[in-house]
Each structure stands twice: as structure tokens, then as C-alpha cells.
């Protein structure tokens, strides 16, 4: 996993509540057996005018000019500003892979769906929860100021405007923060407890033998 420390990035606003993972990456692209290459199909149904299928030359497809990520001023955005319950629906981790592959490293929203939130941390994509009022203001500023950027500092758990005028704090679980700051492989960390797992398993096998048949 790629480390996440400080991100100074252009912000793109996606002004919809309950954006589900079917929208983030539609199912026809889940057929891939790889982890990469999902970026061109991020928000596929909203982003292109035609229907997308795997194997197409996506660079030749007609873009929907109204969709926010297609607007020139948001090109190169690494921070996505979103509304409540972002990432609801299916557990597909492809949703976080697609965002990352597109170049998004941080999503800011008033709330996230649980499984999506979890998946983000496994991949170095930082989901930041800010109060609804702050998110409202960020939407306003993003619309008002072309080139609006934010600085996200994971160590300090803060989001600030470029001019340093505003700083908002966010919560993040200590273990997740540690893994993300250091780009650590969670499996490796868990396997440090291998003896404990083995002991637990042995006693469980004794107590509930039918679970191990």
C-alpha cells in the first residue's frame, strides 16, 4: 500500500448524497481479475454519454460535459468532495481501486458507508469525515474559487485551506492511521500474532469440533 502523509490537492465536488458503489464503478468492469485499470471507468455511467463495456477504447468515447470530473477546472483533482453516505451498496473494493487509479487520494464527506470506508484504508485512499456544515462550506468555496485546493495532513488529522485560513480536524482510528502513514501491509502485522491465532484455533477446535469437520 502506498503511504499517505500530507496531500496538497485540487478538489472536485460531487454534489450528490448516497453515491453507491455501482455508480463509482459499474458492474461490467468487475469482471477484471486485476487490481488496476479501473480509473478510466470511474463513474462510467455519469462520465460518458454512451454505454461502456470492458475492452472498449475509452479515450474515444463521448464525454458528458456536465459531469464534474469532465470539466477542465477539475482536471488533475486528487481530492473528492462528496455528500453523506458515500460508497453505500455493494462491497466491491473495485470502487476504491477505481478512485485511486483515477488519481483520487482522499474523499471528504459527512459520512461513509461502513464497508467502503474500510476498503479505503486497505489501499491508501483516505476517507475524511467532516461535519455537514463544514462540507457545505467546502462545496460553496469549491464552486466559488477556481483552482480550490486543500491540504490534508494525516499525522495531524487536519484539513486546511491553502491560505491557512481554516483548519478542520477529523477523527481516524489509531491503527488505521499508523498503517496508512507507514504504508504497512496489514497481513504482515496480523501474522505477528500467528501463535495466538493458532492457540485460539486449537481451543476452538476442542470446544466446537463440528466447525472443523
Amino acid at each position: 500500500m502506498e503511504k499517505f502523509t500530507v496531500l496538497d490537492g485540487l478538489v472536485a465536488p460531487l454534489d450528490r448524497a448516497n453515491v453507491d458503489t455501482d455508480q463509482i464503478i459499474p458492474k461490467q468492469f468487475l469482471k477484471s481479475i486485476k487490481r488496476s485499470g479501473f480509473g478510466v471507468n470511474l463513474f462510467d455511467a455519469w462520465r460518458y454519454m454512451d454505454h461502456g463495456e470492458p475492452g472498449m477504447d475509452h479515450s474515444r468515447r463521448p464525454l458528458n460535459p456536465d459531469f464534474v470530473l469532465n470539466q477542465a477546472r477539475f482536471r488533475g483533482a486528487t481530492i473528492l468532495l462528496a455528500r453523506k453516505n458515500f460508497g453505500c451498496g455493494s462491497s466491491r473494493e473495485h470502487a476504491s481501486w477505481a478512485l485511486l487509479d483515477y488519481g483520487i487520494r482522499c474523499v471528504i464527506a459527512p459520512s461513509f458507508a461502513d464497508i467502503f470506508y474500510n476498503n479505503c484504508f486497505k489501499n491508501g485512499l483516505l476517507p475524511v469525515v467532516l461535519p455537514e456544515a463544514d462540507v457545505d462550506r467546502l462545496f460553496y468555496e469549491c464552486a466559488s474559487f477556481p483552482g480550490f485546493r486543500l491540504i490534508v495532513n494525516l499525522e495531524q488529522q487536519s484539513v486546511s485551506t491553502k491560505d491557512g485560513g481554516q483548519t478542520m480536524r477529523f477523527e481516524v482510528d489509531g491503527f488505521r492511521k499508523y498503517c496508512m502513514l507507514n504504508g504497512l501491509d496489514e497481513i504482515g502485522l496480523t501474522l505477528r500474532h500467528a501463535d495466538k491465532i493458532r492457540a485460539f484455533e486449537a481451543s476452538r477446535r476442542e470446544q466446537f469440533p463440528w466447525l472443523f469437520r
Binding site: E93, H94, S96, I115, N118, E186, T190, L191
Partner: peptide
């Protein structure tokens, strides 16, 4: 409960999940 693909790998490798 449902898990993401990284967690599928985690469970395959360790028989455990990191959870809160």
C-alpha cells in the same frame, strides 16, 4: 458480514480479520 477483496486476502492468509 461482507468484506472487501483485501480482507478476503487477509482472511485467506490469517483466518482473522482486523475489526472494531
Amino acid at each position: 458480514f461482507g468484506i472487501g477483496t483485501s480482507e478476503v486476502e487477509h482472511v485467506l492468509a490469517t483466518q482473522c480479520l482486523v475489526a472494531r
